[in-house]
Nucleic acid binder design. Structure first.
Lengths: 347, 347
DNA sequence: CTGAAAGCGCTTACAG
DNA sequence: CTGAAAGCGCTTACAG
């Protein structure tokens, strides 16, 4: 298929400068207004068919492409959204980004992304940068301590949707899973399979969504709960310490629930290095998917977030908020527990 | 640190409309020209210090942020680059994206990305879309059969850099590794470790960079080469067939070189399912990194591309091309072989 | 030292 | 059925 992009008839003289409405207008001998109307299919019934045809032909011959920057300035709308994730190189972020990209395209939107590295300050910088570029709205995975940023966005009345993370005390658009339920599914599964002593490895954080995972687990484990806390900047070290503590406990663990994919990977490495067999000696359930779980000698059970639904819902909610700024919606989806051999003791 | 973004003094009346140069000009009682000069630090020495101070204060009080769309239209420059990858959800793409994002930021550029899904037509669509949005340049990982797209970009004289993939017969900016050498490192390593019969699993493709990997391998293996070809749309099926053929050969393989990360993962799954032990029965070397390789019972040896260097070099080359369009440079970097237990037989 | 004016490339209400 | 004109929010050469 010869694409329009590669229709290069008569364009040789236009290599340096993009052709504008004015060029077409001059070429045909009409006003730029008329060219604009024709190419945008406006005032259709009132325009002379021959003139319209001539304009369309000229546009094609000259390989005209409208300048979206000019259009954006006039329309006060860029059809661009800003996406702020923790780190685009992290599979969770990049998978979400891909889903949002595709869904955005169906609405005619492009995506500018930025990585916050879990830093509140970088988040502020990215918000500024994206707003300066006049994005029509934002989808943000917030790091800790960003209440001020949320309040600012509310105050200036810019459409935005929080994804994955949100503040339960601040009324905003958000799309996330029910992390309490998700954790309970994991723990309940381990208990149902006869595990008595279950360790939970979790980030030490103020982020609500992560603490909900702990709360869900503790709610079922009660005073039996063994929690290992991990600092975001000392993951490997703290995971190792947590597991070692779980194992040296007077009542050592027979199962571990890791509350994120990075924690799971780090934990599995340590368990491997100790020569402990999964699931026979310790059962394991992780959180979020990675290739590594499939390939592990005991394919890893994990809490699977509905990424496609999360991405699509956040984009749809953003669009509807752009179109009607008073809209506020809290979307909470359920995660699914994918059970494989890491948590099932073979007979 | 209270960030300027959150300086909301006196902004309550400006919640709906962004404040413009004109607002500041009216507020202070000067022309927009003067406001522009002051805020851009131009004509510094010629402007009355008191007036300048007043303007700066007003800008801060009103929480002024320049509209980059207007600036872009006037300057004919957006400080935005377009990045076209195969799939932002693929770790190789997202890691490169992250590196380019960071490097771009240091030059004041933002990144709009798009995924081509290895489709020439989607690549065309993305090029159109990004050029319509007036990006200052493009970084592209090309799919097959996109010679026309490359020639078009050359013809309209837009700055671009090909990353990872390129056409050796078309003279363009490109940044890639030497794939021939990379493959030779993998094969040589396997040969040095006493492997006599080495299978190579590779995509059936016209992409130069992938075929260079085959060429590098075959160059060392000569008539002894066993190649398994894999269609991009039937990866698992073809990988399985290749491995089965390698094993049922009269002279069966004792080592396999997989020429991409997806091929490696698919292959390891099949080898696992056959109950074949790595490296004792078959040694394995992969291409490109993934978490899964670390966690595998025999951590997987692999060809490691210098992602940071690839990303940084492509961004730097693009910037220098934006600044001087006659610049053409072919950057070829060397990959490194990371040797771990999957390819070393323990004594 | 400062302002009026033009212009970037569009869109659209208005006039005829 | 069509065009002149204003305007989106900036920048900058020019004039004074």
């Amino acid at each position: 298929m010869p694409l329009n992009l590669f229709n290069t008839k008569n364009t040789s003289t236009f290599m340096k400068k993009n052709v504008s409405l004015k060029d077409i207008a001059e070429h045909v001998g009409v006003s730029t207004a008329l060219v604009s109307y024709v190419l945008n299919n406006k005032l259709k019934d009132r325009i002379n068919k021959d003139v319209a045809a001539k304009i369309k032909k000229a546009a094609e011959d000259l390989n005209y492409r409208p300048n979206q920057i000019a259009r954006s300035l006039k329309a006060q709308k860029t059809f661009t959204i800003g996406l702020i994730v923790a780190d685009i190189a992290n599979p969770f972020s990049s998978q979400i980004a891909r889903i949002i990209e595709d869904e955005a395209k169906t609405y005619g939107y492009s995506v500018i992304f930025g990585s916050s590295d879990e830093s509140a300050e970088k988040t502020s910088d990215l918000i500024k940068l994206l707003l300066d570029r006049q994005v029509d709205g934002l989808i943000i995975a917030l790091p800790e301590h960003t209440e001020a940023q949320v309040h600012y966005l509310q105050k200036i009345n810019v459409p935005f949707v929080l994804i994955d993370r949100y503040y339960p005390t601040i009324q905003t658009n958000s799309v996330s899973i029910n992390n309490f339920n998700a954790a309970q599914k994991a723990i309940q599964h381990l208990m149902d399979n006869g595990h008595k002593r279950i360790g939970v490895v979790a980030y030490k954080t103020s982020l609500f969504h992560l603490n909900e995972r702990i709360r869900g687990a503790v709610d079922l484990l009660a005073e039996n709960a063994l929690i290992g806390e991990v600092g975001i900047n000392s993951i490997n070290q703290d995971v190792i310490a947590s597991i070692d503590r779980f194992l040296s406990d007077p009542d050592p663990v027979d199962a571990i629930f890791f509350t994120s994919n990075l924690l799971t990977i780090s934990g599995l490495k340590h368990i491997n290095s100790l020569g402990i067999r999964i699931p026979d000696q310790i059962a394991v359930v992780g959180f979020d998917e990675t290739d590594a779980f499939d390939l592990f000698y005991a394919p890893v059970s994990f809490v699977k977030q509905p990424l496609v639904d999360l991405g699509n819902a956040s984009l749809k909610l953003l669009i509807s908020t752009i179109e009607n700024k008073d809209n506020i919606e809290v979307v909470e989806l359920e995660a699914e527990l994918v059970i494989r051999s890491s948590s099932i003791i073979q007979k």
